[in-house]
């Protein structure tokens, strides 16, 4: 039995290695996906310190519960981003009860594989195209809900639209985006 260097393992293999208490594997997960987890949490919370807490929670949860990741349901990046989003939204919704420090240092760039950057840029480009292909009445509720951390009911109030309308526009917008992304050969 030979264990490969963590940097050469696939994401799924990394999670298996994490399950076997290999800390180098967890570090590699962090190295590959920490930036994206952080980026999303920061975008939703608008707060670097809160975003760092989210990253910490998400990574620690993978360490304690690697079995929660089901590779048949999607990629590791998507799984971690869903966790990041859920926690970031929780943070936004309970912000009133939280005291936040200001003026956190902005992280400086570090070794983020150029291959990942290229892939992420391709992805970002396709996603930008997908979201901009939506009509305004579908794009706005999706962005308000996802990046604003609002429930669809809050979005309905913000946009002065019926709740049922917002609900169905979010769904139809996501379906369209799914189609556009699949056609372009890119997905999460």
């Amino acid at each position: 039995m030979e264990e490969e260097q963590a940097s050469l393992l696939s994401d799924a293999q990394l999670v298996v290695a994490v399950g076997r208490f290999r800390e180098d594997a967890l570090a590699e997960v962090y190295r590959r996906h920490g930036g994206a987890i952080y980026g999303l949490a920061r975008r939703v919370t608008g707060d670097g310190a809160e975003a760092e807490d989210v990253v910490q929670e998400v990574i620690l949860r993978l360490w304690s519960r690697p079995d929660a990741f089901d590779p048949s349901r999607g990629s590791l990046r998507s799984f971690l981003l869903a966790q990041s989003h859920g926690r970031a939204v929780d943070a936004v919704r309970s912000r009133a009860a939280r005291q936040r420090r200001e003026g956190r240092e902005v992280p400086t760039p570090s070794g983020y594989d150029i291959e990942h950057q290229v892939w992420d840029l391709v992805l970002a480009d396709q996603v930008a195209k997908a979201i901009s292909s939506l009509p305004e009445e579908e794009r706005a509720p999706i962005e308000l809900a996802y990046f604003g951390g609002h429930t669809y009911r809050e979005v309905a109030v913000l946009l002065s639209q019926p709740e049922g309308t917002v609900k169905s526009r979010i769904r139809s917008g996501l379906r369209k985006m799914r189609g556009v992304l699949a056609d372009s050969g890119v997905s999460g």
């Binding site: 930036g35 999303l40 396709q126």
Partner: peptide
Amino acid sequence: DAFMEVAAALGNSIDPVPPELWARIG
């Protein structure tokens, strides 16, 4: 599952990993 992938694609970013944070997590 499909919507979650779309959401993840939407939330995917090219932010660099915060360099100091791993120390806290570790």
